[in-house]
């Protein structure tokens, strides 16, 4: 954010430091409705504070990007130490049923690339997109390549259409903005396709909630993003994400050197979950191992979709999981 404070005004943008995280996400939503690409970044307690407004962003279909640099919680926890305990929070921390998109970078390069992707997905689907980094990635110094030109998704601002849906069950309606002369009616209450409050009508609510879910679920194939390493003959597959996946890849290579058939399925998206990709390991891999800096938040998802043996290793001491630990834990399983 400090870098954005320096760079954004030079690029014709606006940076403002609000009084707290609730105000920050609120200002992001207000800015987005004027047509601006808007983002904020936070960690730990600040992420918790943003939850109510994030539900508002989902329900009003407001494109925005939230960077959560996960740290060791709960509560204030270890403010400058690493954690991975917000994986479920970004999906389930808002009250009510929502589907969102969450990306998991493992490098400085991906902080850049996935930030671009996050904005594009947010604009295309009209929803908040989460860049779920962790402290280790957040404080990383390494080489990255920045591009002169990037593909930028332009918001569909066509006028004259209902701004909150149409017949298409997973459809993304056009989003004209404040000042476009559309007399927009935006509310966090249940609303019909033109934004009129309809809190007494069960079908309106059910239809809206379902469309917002299907907007993501029907596009899961284009959204879910994984990387596969040494999976062709792998008997043991490590499923990992974020900084932990770096250690997992090193561990898999080391274990290969010791003659063990180990591969890595790296999740570059946490949500929607890579259910098909995990299920596809069935019948080929004998077991899946999930190391993560929480107590089994992705492990539980993997268990839902992989029918073979699934084991996890959860570490929440504010340190990254060492390669040697992953090697040791996989060897114990095999």
């Amino acid at each position: 954010m400090e870098t954005l404070a320096e760079l954004l005004p030079r690029a014709g943008g606006v940076f403002v430091q609000m009084e707290d995280e609730i105000a920050s996400i609120s200002a992001v939503i207000g800015a987005s409705w004027t047509g601006a690409k808007a983002m904020t970044a936070t960690s730990g307690p600040g992420f918790s504070l943003m939850m109510e407004a994030l539900g508002y962003a989902v329900f009003t279909e407001t494109p925005c990007v939230i960077v959560d640099v996960q740290r060791a919680g709960p509560c204030t926890g270890q403010a400058t130490r690493v954690g991975g305990g917000d994986v479920m929070q970004c999906k389930w921390g808002m009250h009510g049923d929502v589907e969102i998109v969450a990306l998991a970078p493992w490098s400085v390069q991906e902080m850049y690339d996935l930030s671009v992707r996050a904005f594009n997905v947010a604009e295309r689907l009209r929803l908040p997109v989460f860049l779920m980094a962790d402290e280790a990635v957040g404080h990383l110094h390494e080489t990255a390549e920045f591009h002169d030109r990037i593909a930028v998704e332009q918001r569909d601002r066509r006028k004259g259409f209902p701004p909150f849906g149409h017949g298409d069950p997973g459809g993304v309606p056009p989003m004209p903005c404040f000042g476009d002369g559309e007399n927009l009616l935006v509310t966090g209450s249940t609303h019909d396709e033109r934004g009129y409050r309809k809190v007494e009508e069960p079908q309106v609510h059910a239809r809206l909630v379902e469309r917002l879910r299907q907007k993501v679920l029907l596009r899961r194939d284009e959204l879910v993003d994984v990387e596969r390493y040494m999976l062709d003959d792998a008997e043991t597959v490590i499923v990992a994400y974020g900084f932990t996946a770096r250690g997992a890849l090193a561990a898999a290579r080391e274990l290969r050197g010791r003659g063990r058939k180990v591969g890595l399925l790296r999740l570059r998206t946490l949500w929607p979950f890579a259910d098909k990709e995990v299920a596809a390991l069935d019948g080929r891999a004998r077991r899946v191992f999930v190391p993560e800096m929480n107590h089994g938040q992705v492990l539980g998802e993997v268990r839902k979709h992989f029918r073979g043996d699934v084991a996890g290793y959860g570490q929440t001491d504010g340190e990254v999981i060492p390669v040697g630990t992953i090697v040791r834990e996989v060897e114990r399983l095999t």
Binding site: V14, V16, M18, I22, A23, S24, S26, A27, V28, I29, G30, A31, S32, W33, T34, G35, A36, A38, E52, A53, Y56, F178, G179, E182, N183, L184, L185, V186, T187, G188, S189, R197
Partner: peptide, 21 residues
């Protein structure tokens, strides 16, 4: 254009909208 926001947060939403446009 009307933006009906969360309890207590109207001024913060308005700040974002005004600064952006």
């Amino acid at each position: 254009d009307t933006l009906h926001t969360l309890h207590g947060r109207a001024v913060a939403y308005a700040t974002g909208a005004k600064l952006a446009n």
